[in-house]
Design a protein around this nucleic acid. Structure first.
Lengths: 142, 142
DNA sequence: CATATGTTTCAAGTAAAAATGAAATTAAGC
DNA sequence: GCTTAATTTCATTTTTACTTGAAACATATG
């Protein structure tokens, strides 16, 4: 979770649900972890957005009950699609703009050459990432 | 850098050096980025630890001069080796201890079964990660 | 060796992120 | 449609992370 840029508490919520056979209502999560229901609500919202948990109906109980997505392969591929890929695309866009800037401004030939080489490396990196990262999800045969 | 758990300023230092043909002394980095020399010193220390920059001697100048490592493949594999792999190992260790705990404590058979399945998934994840992540560095032919 | 220049360290200050708690909103059950 | 339980939202507080600046340390040079 830390790697995914989420607070510790969100990791704790996921961990609790991952090791719970029954779906848990929010108040149980909050009291078990000793956090406020406000935090629990926000944390669960984050996890729902990532599709790392889903809420389900439990007969005879008004409360939402939460269940962890336990297929890491699916977690990973969702995260890739929703978080990493958009970043990569915006990186590509920024690199493109940088390139234009260098072409249009009158930088000395030697410096321009250097910048172009560095930009080329960045382009190769983003390209390789776009290729490799989605492939990884496929390789994760868990 | 964010993904690697480093502050923005460290990313800025690396970015500046990445696009500098000449190695830069610390005070140039600090003044160019508008940060204190204390921050610059710490940031460069971080980057040196990651082998993302190296300092070099420049004739006739007492100051250390810094140059960015521009091979992403090398950056990636260093990061993998020094930061990711140790984490993975400690994760494996924690999983092992969890397993022992379940075996030794008298949990009802049905629950124990559930925990074992979840732990099995974690083990497969760490195993796959140990296999895939280093392989990625090799695939990064940039 | 003394001085000046460059660098690191770290306590204190500042900024950013996360948690709380209570008010607002939603919706279930009667 | 009213009541009440459940949940969300958000201003405030708390915590954590980052930056600064000054002192300590290191090292080159005369």
């Amino acid at each position: 979770m830390n790697m995914m840029g989420l607070p510790r508490s969100v990791g704790e919520i996921y961990g609790l649900l991952y090791f719970s056979e029954k779906p848990l209502p929010m108040d149980a999560v909050a009291s078990r972890l000793g956090i406020s229901i406000g935090s629990a609500s926000q944390g669960l919202k984050n996890l729902r957005t990532l599709k790392a948990v889903r809420s389900m109906y439990v007969a005879g109980d008004r409360r939402d009950h939460y269940l962890a997505e336990s297929e890491f392969r699916r977690l990973f591929s969702n995260f890739m699609k929703d978080e990493i890929m958009p970043h990569l695309e915006s990186a590509k866009e920024r690199i493109r703009r940088m390139e234009e800037l260098i072409d249009s401004s009158n930088i000395e030939a030697q410096n321009a050459k250097f910048y172009q080489i560095r930009i080329e490396k960045l382009k190769r990196l983003t390209k390789a990432s776009s290729r490799l990262l989605p492939a990884m999800a496929g390789l994760l045969k868990l």
